[in-house]
Design a protein around this nucleic acid. Structure first.
Length: 343
DNA sequence: TACCCGTGGCG
DNA sequence: TCGCCAAGGGT
C-alpha cells in the first residue's frame, strides 16, 4: 500500500527539480496545451517539438486554425503519422470556435465531447489547465503503476486501466496537473520499458517491484499475436496396394509428427512432382477444405485425393497401410483428415 | 472487443 | 533483423 502524501511529495519534488523543458510547458493557453497533447499521442516528446513550434506559428489561434483549409493544416502534420488526429483536432477546434465562442471548454463533460478527445486527452488537458482532479492514465502510467503496486494483471485489459484510475484518484485531488505530468515524466525518463534507472528513482522506496526484484517482470502485457494464415494443399496419395504416403516433419512446429504431404497453395504441381520425384495424378477439385487453428497461425487446407505409380520413397517419406496409421504420431489436423477420408 | 491508424528509436 | 514501444482514439 502506497502512502499517498509521502509518495506525492517525493514525486513532485523530483518533478519540479528535474522536469524537462518543453515548449508547451511555457504557456497556459489551453489551445496550445491541447494541441501538444494531441501531438504527443503515441509520439515521443523529441519528435513532437519541431512540429509543435511550426504549427502554433502558422496557426497561432483557434480562429486561424478554424479558418484554414484542411490541406494546409495537413501539411503541418506531414511526417508525424496518425493523420486522423489532426483532422479530428481541426474539427474540434472549429466546434470550439462556433459553439463555445472560441473558448476551450473548462469542464471535462463538454471538453470530452469534442472530436478526438478521449479519456487520456481529457484528463491531461483538464488537469494541466484547470487542475481538474482526473488521473491521466497513459502507457507510461500503466507501466509505472503496475511496478509501484506490483500488479501483474494485463495492462492491455480495460478493467486494469479502470482499476488504476480508481487507485490514482486520491493522488489527484490537488495539483492534479503536476501529478499527472510527473507520473508520465517518471515513466519516460526513469521507469522506462527496458533498462530502468531504479537507482535514480525518486519513489524507489514506495515501489513494490523494486523491493521484490521483479521490476523487469512488470508490467504484464498480453502480446497481441497477429495470426498468420497459410493456405496449403494436402495430398492424400495412395498407390495400387491402397497404401498411403506419409512423411515425418523436421520443423519447429509439430516436429517429428507424421503428416500427409502438404505444400503451400501457390506451389505448382510440377514443383511438387519434382520434390517427390514421382508422377502424381491429383484430383481436379479438392475432396474438401478444412482449417486448423494454432495459437499463432491458421492453416487453410485443401485436401486432394491423389495417386501415383511410384512404389519406393525414401525417408522422410514412406508408405503405410491404413492399419499402420495407429502406430505413428499424427497431428490433430492430419488425423481429422484421415478420418474424414476413411469414413 | 479487436483492429486500424504512421513513424522513429531502441535492444 | 525484428518486435516492441511511444503523453490514444475511432469504429
Amino acid at each position: 500500500m502506497i502512502e499517498t502524501k509521502q509518495f506525492k511529495d517525493d514525486l513532485l519534488n523530483w518533478f519540479h527539480k528535474n522536469k524537462r523543458q518543453m515548449p508547451w510547458r511555457e504557456t497556459s493557453n489551453p489551445y496550445y496545451i491541447w494541441l501538444s497533447e494531441v501531438m504527443l499521442q503515441q509520439t515521443q516528446v523529441n519528435t513532437v517539438r519541431p512540429y509543435y513550434k511550426a504549427f502554433i506559428e502558422r496557426f497561432p489561434t483557434i480562429e486561424s486554425l478554424s479558418e484554414a483549409n484542411e490541406e494546409d493544416v495537413l501539411k503541418y502534420w506531414e511526417g508525424l503519422g496518425y493523420y486522423s488526429r489532426v483532422r479530428n483536432f481541426q474539427e474540434a477546434v472549429k466546434e470550439v470556435h462556433h459553439s463555445y465562442h472560441g473558448v476551450v471548454p473548462d469542464n471535462p463533460d463538454d471538453f470530452k465531447k469534442l472530436k478526438g478527445v478521449g479519456p487520456y486527452t481529457n484528463a491531461a488537458v483538464m488537469s494541466i489547465v484547470h487542475n481538474h482532479p482526473i488521473p491521466a492514465v497513459d502507457g507510461n502510467v500503466l507501466r509505472v503503476w503496475s511496478r509501484l503496486t506490483g500488479n501483474d494483471s494485463d495492462i492491455a485489459a480495460p478493467k486494469t486501466k479502470k482499476l488504476y484510475e480508481d487507485e490514482l484518484q486520491p493522488f489527484v485531488e490537488e495539483h492534479s496537473g503536476d501529478f499527472n505530468q510527473a507520473m508520465m515524466e517518471l515513466g519516460a525518463t526513469i521507469c522506462t520499458p527496458k533498462k530502468t534507472l531504479c537507482i535514480m528513482c525518486p519513489v524507489q522506496k514506495h515501489c513494490y517491484a523494486f523491493a521484490n526484484g521483479i521490476v523487469d517482470e512488470l508490467p504484464v502485457k498480453k502480446k497481441k499475436i497477429k495470426k498468420k494464415t497459410i493456405d496449403f494443399n494436402v495430398l492424400y496419395i495412395t498407390n495400387r496396394s491402397g497404401e498411403i504416403l506419409v512423411r515425418q516433419r523436421d520443423t519447429k512446429l509439430l516436429n517429428g509428427m507424421w503428416e500427409f504431404p502438404m505444400f503451400e497453395a501457390d506451389e505448382s504441381i510440377h514443383s511438387i512432382e519434382e520434390t517427390l520425384d514421382a508422377v502424381i495424378d491429383i484430383d481436379q477439385t479438392p475432396e474438401y477444405t478444412t482449417k486448423h487453428v494454432f495459437t499463432h497461425m491458421t492453416w487453410n487446407m485443401n485436401v486432394y485425393r491423389a495417386h501415383t505409380q511410384k512404389s519406393d520413397f525414401d525417408y522422410p517419406y514412406k508408405w503405410i497401410k491404413k492399419e499402420e496409421k495407429e502406430q505413428l504420431s499424427f497431428s490433430t489436423s492430419m488425423s481429422k483428415i484421415f478420418n474424414q477420408l476413411n469414413g
